[in-house]
Amino acid sequence: MSEFKVTIVDSLSFYDRCLQETVDEQAFRYEIMKPFEEMWHYLNAPLVSKKPGGYDVLMASEMLGIWTPRKSVDLIKSRLEQLKESNIFNECTQVIAESTRLFNEIGYQIPFEELIVNILLGDPENGILMASEGYSGFGGIPGYIFLIVVPNDFNQVRLKSALAHEFNHNIRFTYEPFNHGDVSVEDYLVIEGLAEVFAEKLYGVEYRGPWVKEYDKEELEYTIEVMKDGRDVRGFDQVCAYMYGDEVAREQGYQPIGLSRNAGYTIGYHLIKDYLKKTGKTIAEATLTPSSTIVEESRIFD
């Protein structure tokens, strides 16, 4: 049975202070991001850049859509109470326990000693974050999870599902580590499909994320064909166009390839659903299965 410590960063106290007094960027670095220093090290983002204005945790955080004290506090004034009302801070350990139980049931010993969770207010001026109904997450480094949220009626009830989604990434990457520079379209379809189906298993389809779209039969078949042709494309920059679609590709400077927003998430979801239906495997078992096996046995590209 897996046993590990769950630590939740006290971001609420930090935001309370931000609304009551002037809080500088150093507090953000050392109070909010210091617990994630090892994760940022993997991502080549130091707590403080060696050069003024250089790449560091502030710049990286802002790129992810996280609010920092370099931006106006007015952007979060009306959001903090909504974040508290979502109850995700109280429900966080329960979500982790319920997620862990699915892996305990198949005898998988989760190989980290501590999981650190940081629930952060997002930047409502970040277009990509707001295009996903104001919430996102990052679980790409085992032992660390971010949830990023600009609270609203849609996402407040989906934060447990979003946390489970990121937890699945954590476990997947203990089995098959994420290779940013060499990830393929096929790999990424599996990664995101596993995470969303895992969350759906725990909390129901009604709390599914907005990144899974409802395609009609024609668009679904067309998108599957595009993915089939590009399934061996490798490298995060190239893969992003397949996963996020043309709109985001243009915003990020990638080459559009004729896909709707979040096309890869949608096809990944269907790929995993097909795999589970055809094999009878559980979503936990699938999370610990090679991508190539999942794709082949799903038969989605046949």
Rank of each mutant, 00 (worst) to 15 (best):
M1V: 13
V6K: 01
S11H: 08
S13G: 15
L19I: 03
T22A: 12
D24S: 01
F28V: 02
E38L: 12
W40Q: 13
A45I: 10
V48I: 02
K50M: 11
K50E: 15
P52N: 14
L58R: 13
E62W: 08
T68G: 06
P69D: 09
S72M: 11
I76Y: 10
K77V: 05
S78C: 03
L80G: 07
E81Y: 06
E81R: 06
S86K: 02
E91N: 08
V95M: 03
T100G: 05
T100D: 05
N104T: 11
N104E: 15
I106A: 07
I106G: 10
G107A: 01
Q109S: 09
E113M: 06
L115G: 00
L120A: 04
G122S: 02
E125D: 07
G127H: 13
G127S: 12
L129V: 08
M130Y: 11
F146W: 15
L147M: 09
L147W: 03
L147N: 04
V150T: 15
V157G: 06
K160I: 02
S161N: 05
H165T: 04
N168F: 03
N170W: 05
F173A: 00
F173D: 00
T174V: 00
Y175K: 00
Y175D: 09
F178H: 04
N179I: 13
G181N: 15
D182T: 14
S184F: 09
V185Y: 04
D187Y: 03
Y188P: 03
G193P: 11
L194K: 01
A195S: 04
F198R: 11
K201T: 14
G204D: 01
E206H: 11
Y207L: 13
Y207V: 06
Y207F: 09
P210K: 12
V212K: 11
K213G: 03
Y215F: 15
E219C: 03
Y222T: 05
T223Y: 02
E225K: 15
V226C: 14
D229C: 08
Q238D: 07
V239R: 01
M243H: 01
Y244N: 00
G245L: 00
D246A: 07
E247V: 02
E247F: 02
E251C: 07
Q252G: 03
G253H: 09
Y254E: 15
L259A: 09
G264W: 01
G264P: 04
Y265H: 00
T266W: 12
I267N: 04
I272H: 09
K273L: 13
L276C: 00
K277H: 10
G280W: 04
I283T: 08
A284P: 01
E285D: 05
V295L: 08
S298F: 07
I300V: 14
